[in-house]
Amino acid sequence: MSAVTRDPTDNAIFGRDDTRAVRCTVNGEPVAFTVAPYRTLLDALRHEIGLTGTKKGCDVGDCGACTVLVDGAPVNACLMLALEADGRAIETVEGLAGAEGELHPLQRQFMRCGAAQCGFCTPGMLMMAKALLAEKPAPSETEIRFALAGNICRCTGYTKIVEAVAETAKEAAQEGQAPR
């Protein structure tokens, strides 16, 4: 990941040297960073921590592209201040795969079903789907559609996304375990 480079004058203006320290875990790893109080969790993840998988599609909570999990619950990272992440456990798309790089069942099924086209909504979709399956391991198609209703996709018509989530649940049921 490329380092964040700041102009030396950046922090000197508008009292923005008033950065605060945040300690949290991101994808299981402890992370400490300082951030201006007005920064969103989305901007902090993307440009302070360097995890750009989480996308900015609207920055006002309308599209769901920035969905991450905070203590397991799905959150629009653009609507949460980075400071509020202090002490919390954040999960992003980069944390879905296992330590050895093995794909999460949702990632595998999204690939198999062709559930991504341009890919911009995909990270948010995956995180929302993960939250759904954690709560409801065997959702109906309607439940999947309603769970994903806050995540806009403009390419796929949602057909293959819904299919991928349903297939993941089915696969987990056959293996007798809920997906991670």
Binding site: S2, A3, V4, T5, D7, R46, H47, L51, T52, G53, T54, K55, K56, T92, V93, E94, L96, A97, L103, L106, Q107, F110, M111, G114, A116, G119, F120, T122, P123, L126
Partner: peptide, 26 residues
């Protein structure tokens, strides 16, 4: 329907879009 080559990057979050880029002094 062979495995689409772009999807591995898209489901992992590593697919890079223009606004993901940061350059020194930007």
């Amino acid at each position: 329907s062979v495995r689409r080559s772009d999807l591995a990057e898209k489901v992992s979050g590593s697919a890079r879009y223009t606004a993901d880029i940061r350059l020194p002094g930007m």
